[in-house]
Simulated scan of single mutants.
Amino acid sequence: MYHSQRDINVVSPWAAKTWAGITANGYYDSTCPGALITREESAVVTNRLRKNFLKLIAGTNGNVSDLDKRLKKIEAEEK
């Protein structure tokens, strides 16, 4: 299938609002929104989400290290 070339530095109109939010929250650096993502880039974003999720949950009881240990145990079970 033929795909027209696009400028990877320009956000697609359908994704503009989401892209603005995700970059404003620091998950992506706002460069090359139309480029393919690598596993390394995906790992960075996943790790940022994971840390923020732990902080959010820890806000209910203030203990991030226990939550991190529990999450690592859960993640190990998923392998």
Rank of each mutant, 00 (worst) to 15 (best):
G21E: 15
V64D: 12
L71T: 05
L67H: 10
K51A: 11
A35V: 09
S4E: 15
L54S: 01
A58K: 02
I8A: 12
K73E: 15
F53T: 11
A15K: 06
S4C: 08
A20C: 07
D29M: 01
K73Q: 11
A76N: 10
T38A: 08
D29C: 03
G26C: 01
N25R: 11
Y2H: 10
Y27K: 05
R39T: 10
K79R: 09
A24D: 13
L71G: 00
V11E: 03
S12N: 06
L54D: 01
I57W: 03
K17W: 11
T38F: 04
S42Y: 13
R50N: 12
L67V: 13
T18Y: 07
M1V: 09
I74V: 10
D29T: 03
E75N: 04
V10Q: 11
N25D: 14
A58Y: 02
D66H: 01
L36F: 09
T23L: 00
Y28M: 12
N9H: 11
G62D: 10
K51S: 11
N25Y: 07
D66I: 09
W14N: 04
I74T: 12
N25V: 09
R6Y: 14
R48P: 00
L36E: 15
L49T: 11
D7G: 00
D7W: 00
V45H: 00
G34T: 03
P13M: 08
M1P: 09
N9S: 13
E40N: 00
A20H: 07
K73D: 15
W14D: 13
G62H: 05
T60M: 13
Q5Y: 08
R6N: 10
Y27I: 05
S65I: 12
Y2E: 14
V11T: 05
L71P: 02
A16E: 15
K72T: 15
V11K: 00
R70D: 15
M1L: 10
A35E: 15
S65H: 07
L56T: 12
K55Y: 13
L49Q: 12
A20E: 14
I37E: 14
S30H: 07
K55G: 14
M1A: 09
E41I: 06
V64Y: 11
V44H: 03
I74G: 05
M1N: 07
T46Q: 11
V45I: 09
P33A: 00
I8N: 08
R6P: 06
V11Q: 02
P13I: 07
I57Q: 05
T31L: 12
K17A: 15
R70F: 13
R70W: 14
G59L: 02
S30D: 14
S30T: 00
T38Q: 05
R50A: 13
P33C: 03
V45L: 04
N9Y: 11
A20S: 08
S30M: 04
K69N: 15
K72Q: 14
R50G: 10
A58W: 00
R70L: 14
E41H: 01
E78N: 08
P33Y: 02
V64H: 08
A58Q: 01
S12Y: 06
K51V: 15
I74F: 13
T31R: 03
K79W: 13
